[in-house]
Structure formats: C-alpha cells, structure tokens
Design a protein around this nucleic acid. Structure first.
Lengths: 334, 334
DNA sequence: CGCACTTATACTCAAATTGAGTATAAAATT
DNA sequence: AATTTTATACTCAATTTGAGTATAAGTGCG
C-alpha cells in the first residue's frame, strides 16, 4: 500500500453547514412519538459539456435545479432521479452518483407535512441537443474558471471585498484566522496554489462574507455570478467539486464526450471542468499510456490546423483483453 | 492541473444495488398525491483503533450497527448522529462524514407509515475505553485483512468457492465475464493487484455468489465472517472503503490516534485500516516530510527494542505557521 | 506559389517522487 | 557478551512528472 501525500484541506465549520442546510426542525411526530415524518425530494445536478463548456440543466429560468419528489412509481432513489431527469432531457444518462443528503429548513413548503429531506445527485449525459434549460457552470461561479480572460478582474474584485470584510472584524485573532482562510481558498499571496476542488468552501466563504445574493447582501456588494433559489447554487458547488475530484481518479470524462473525439477535444473537456489549463503534451502521454482510448481510424479535418486522429473510449474492450490469455475455472462436465 | 492516472474500477451493476437497498416501494401518499411520506433513520459506523486493530461499534451482540430515528430534538442530521453516538460511547466524536442514503425495503417495520430512508454516517473516535459493543472490523470481513497469517487460507477458500460458482453458469459469455470480475476483485491469477478500496464490491460479489449468510446461502457454503442483520454489513463495507480511501488523501488517521504516539504506532494504525503492510522507512519519510507531526520531546520506552520518540499531530499549528510572515489586510482605523 | 499561422504529434531532459534496500543505534533478552 | 528487537538515518535505482524543443500537416492570404 502506498500513500502519496496527505493534503490539508479547509474543514472550517461554516455557520451554514451547521445551522443552515443541515438544520431540521421536525414537527410531525410518528406514532412512536420520536420518529419524525419527512418528505423526500430528489435534486439532480445534470451536467454536460457543449463545445468545451460545462453546462448544467436548470428550470425556472436558471434559478432552480431540476428537482422533484420521490414518487410511488419509483423503484429506487436512483431510478427516481433517472426517470424525471430523462423526462426533462429526453436523453439517457450515463454516470449517476449520489452527492449529499440534507434536511433543510428553507424547504418547508408545506409545514403541516413536516420538514423535507433532500437527496442530491450528480448526473452526467452526452446530450448535445439544444434543449432549453442548459446554463454555463461559470455563469454561476465565474471565479471558478481560471482559464478565462476575465480571471484577473474577478479575482481582484473578490480579493478587495474579502479584504474589506476581514478588516471589519474587531477581534484580531478572528481577523487573522479568517484572512488566512481567504488566502488559502482563493490563492491570495503566498497562501498556496489554487485548489480547484474547493468549490464549495469558496462559495461558503463568500456566503459568510455576504458577497453573494443568497446571503441577503447589499446588491452593490454582490460578486458577479448568477443567483439561484433556495440552496441550489450550493448544491451545484458540491457537484462541481465532486466532478473535479472524480475526473482525476476515474475516467468519467468519457461519459460527457461524444462517441468519437480528438485528444484535444478531450483535453478541452477536462480543462473546462477543472477550470484550469493542462500541459498538452503531457496530457496526451497520460491518455495514450493508460490505453483508455483507441484510434477509430478516422480523421477530424476541421481542426483549424493539422487534422487530428479520432479516438473512442475503450474501457470495455480493455477489460476483455485483460481477461484474454488467463486461466479459466475448469468446468466440470458441461 | 495534473491528472496522475485514471483507475478502472468495477462498476458492475449488482442486483442488490439496483433492486435491493436502493429499492423503495412507497405506500403512503401525501396530500399532493405524489410526494411520498417516509421515516428517516440514522445509522452510524463508529470506528476506533484499539491496540492497532480497527474496531466498529455495534449493538445487539454485534448483529447491528447503532442506529436510530431522526428525532425532533435533533438540530441537524449530523447532530442527530452525534447525539446518540455519544450516548452510546460517552466520548466525543471527531470526524463525521456522510456515507450514503438509501431507501430500503427490508426496513419496513411499520408498513402503515410508509417506507424508510436510511442515512448512514462514518464517525471516528479516539475512544480506547472498554465499553461493550466494540468488534473487530475483520471479524466481519476476514478476507479484507491481508496482514494476518490466515490470509492464504481464506483467500484459497474464496477462490475455490468462486470458481465453483462461475463453473455452474451455463452461458459461456457470462461465465467469462464473472470469472474476470472475480479475478480482478480478489487479485486471483494475473487479474491485477489487490485494491484495498474495493471492500464493497467484493462483498457484493460474495453476496451474489451466495457465499455470505445474508444472501440466504446454505450454511456450509458461507465464507467465514460474522453475520449482521438487515444490510448493516454492507454499510460497514461502505464505511471501510471510504475510510481506506480517506487515509490516502487526508490526515484523518490522527482522529483515531491518542494525543501522543510513536511513528510505528501510527504506521500500525494505517496498516490495520488499509489491511496491508507498508514499507516502514518510506512511511517515516512521508510523515516527517509533510510536517504533519512534531516531536513532543518525550520517549516511549516500552517498544520491546530501542525506545521511540513520541509525536503529536500538529495540523492546527501548521496552519498558523503558514500564516506567519504574510501580509495582512490593512485595517483602516480600528 | 511562398509565407505566416494553426493545430497535431513525437521526442528529450531534468527534477521530483517512489520502491526497496543497507547501515547503524539503542534498548531488552538470553 | 551475544542475540534479538525495534528505531532511525541514509543510499540508490526506477519511475513518474513538469516543462520544454522539434517536426508534421493542414489552413488562409499575399
């Protein structure tokens, strides 16, 4: 067994995590007098990559993630998510992964029914169709895209606002600790490099600093970035963080790619999801070494330069090949 | 951004995952006619390491994980887990992490109330006290401990049983695919090395092959390993896999260690959790390089050989030091 | 056509990391 | 005093990683 490195990540107990989303204030009591009755809601962060830009499926003009109650017809939780996500997109979903479950006090639409439990999922699809409802990831989280040209401006703005926020604190101890947190999360000064997986922690910091609309901040203070109702933007942040973590260790990007693709298109997808650039030659080396893709023989001509070979994902083929040339269990008589 | 390698893990759609734990057959309908009413249960996998052996807290003579309903007094889901876990152990819990949420059809104790949603958590504690209820991890999963002497015997037994299972299949295609799965998961033949994170997948395979008691197998077929009611053994498997994944990337082992420890004790803890050995000298190098620990100045004498230095975890100190010597945001008048 | 420009692909090389070993130190046991 | 046990320091080669150069093969434009 090998351990490469142990990363220190911020596990700051945000006010919101403890008293916000996770808070529950149960009203309906069961016959046992202790078990609480709750209503179950399923929320999906459906993601696709279109023209090298990560998209998320939304409803209500981009202000809500698709979500719906667990219905009696659903065989399972995952089936429930699949069923109405496919209803919305008309396309089959590949990878589906549970994100987080929380009890939310904002979600009490029907107080007489008790509080609700929300179960969020990350779903990936290849859908390139022009359905309505798709929005850019980075419309909601502009600061998470470190490949854009406007990256410097938004970073500077955030830095100034955070600086002012910290400066307003009376306790020196707190001020120092919070400023250190700002530096680490937004890679200010020598606080370390940018960690693309800390999407949620950054959003929570901005929320605490009242720099996002959801935190009831003064409109002129809000950092650019689309607003979402309830805590759906927070759920999106969770999904982004999860997906960014996944693409490092698992070949899930292929769920988002078309059947055939060039290595550069693959790289673009990874870069857009991670929000930062990768070294082109090394990326190619990595992909080809691992034999996750195979040439289709065809060529993509419209690259704007030298034509590129087209590849396809061959995860299944690999398994089969790995199997070939291995001893089988002896079958006794038939 | 860098991607090191993309691992191919088994994502075989086990019968159980699709129709078992996750299955829900809702009965009670809400006033809206679609929203289903459910009862919420919290389940904790509370883990400690005692004398270099991972332990899990159980009730009902080791046949159940501590679990209880979400109560009206609980401020949040996590608070609910903390509250009754501390009730059972009397010790504060460190790391608490959500594992998975599922709707279970086995769990219908009160059909008139509708099905139940179970939310499982992984909790870590330093408790070394001699409470009852603690059980060895590997009482439930003997094959997951690759450091024990009996490792060969259990591996051979499993290999024989799986071989027989596969041999009984009529379809050649299926037989080959399943045997390949067996080889990969249990590192049989040249199917690759042992992956200590595939705890759940291995358990599911044994379940499918009807080699564990939970799968209603003939008693003489069952592989050694303690039985648990409902699907609690499966939840334990999920927790083990999660913890094994975590210790690679995060310094969570320290949550399980006493205040002071020798580097070898730390290594023992990691090895026992991962279920396999690590290179002693390299482990030391890794730990000291990352500056996660600092010497206490004291010495442990009872090592059986040369005395060892005692260390303590210094994650908090590190953050503070990292902060020192960095520009602060200027405080305007006050 | 030659030219600048674009993208694709192959290859090199040094730095860093990792896996695995040897060597030595300081205690207990025999 | 010799042996055993554990702790700790150090070496070294293989591999991986980060970053670069070089070349190939298209486009558009004068």
């Amino acid at each position: 067994m090998h351990i490469k490195q142990w990363h220190m990540k911020h596990t700051g107990t945000s006010r919101r995590t403890e008293q916000g989303d996770d808070a529950v204030n149960v009203q309906g009591e069961s016959a046992q007098g202790r078990m609480s009755r709750v209503v179950t809601e399923l929320i999906a962060v459906l993601t696709a990559v279109r023209d090298g830009v990560p998209q998320v499926m939304t409803i209500d003009d981009g202000r809500l993630l698709p979500s719906g109650p667990l219905e009696s017809g659903h065989r399972s939780l995952q089936a429930g998510v699949r069923s109405w996500v496919e209803q919305q997109t008309g396309h089959p979903i590949g990878h589906v992964e549970q994100l987080y479950t929380f009890a939310d006090h904002d979600r009490t639409l029907h107080p007489e029914q008790g509080r609700s439990i929300s179960i969020s999922y990350l779903a990936l699809t290849r859908s390139e169709a022009r359905e309505t409802g798709w929005r850019d990831w980075y419309d909601y989280f502009p600061w998470e895209d470190r490949t854009s040209e406007s990256r410097k401006e938004i970073t500077n703005l955030i830095e100034r606002r955070l600086c002012a926020w910290v400066a307003g604190m009376t306790d020196l101890e707190t001020r120092m600790r919070q400023w250190q947190r700002c530096m680490a999360l937004f890679a200010i000064g020598d606080g370390g490099g940018w960690d693309d997986e800390l999407v949620l922690q950054r959003y929570e910091l901005l929320y605490e600093a009242k720099l996002v609309m959801e935190a009831a901040c003064p409109p002129n203070q809000a950092i650019p970035g689309r607003y979402m109702h309830r805590d759906h933007r927070r759920i999106l942040a969770t999904a982004m963080a999860r997906l960014r973590a996944r693409i490092r260790y698992r070949p899930v990007v292929f769920e988002l790619m078309p059947e055939e693709f060039t290595l550069f298109q693959l790289q673009r997808a990874v870069e857009s999801l991670a929000g930062c650039h990768v070294h082109k030659q090394n990326f190619r080396r990595l992909i080809t070494q691992q034999q996750l893709v195979e040439e289709t023989g065809r060529i993509e001509e419209k690259t704007g330069g030298r034509p590129a070979r087209l590849f396809r994902f061959c995860g299944e083929v690999r398994r089969a090949r790995q199997f070939a040339g291995t001893k089988l269990p002896i079958v006794h008589s038939g």
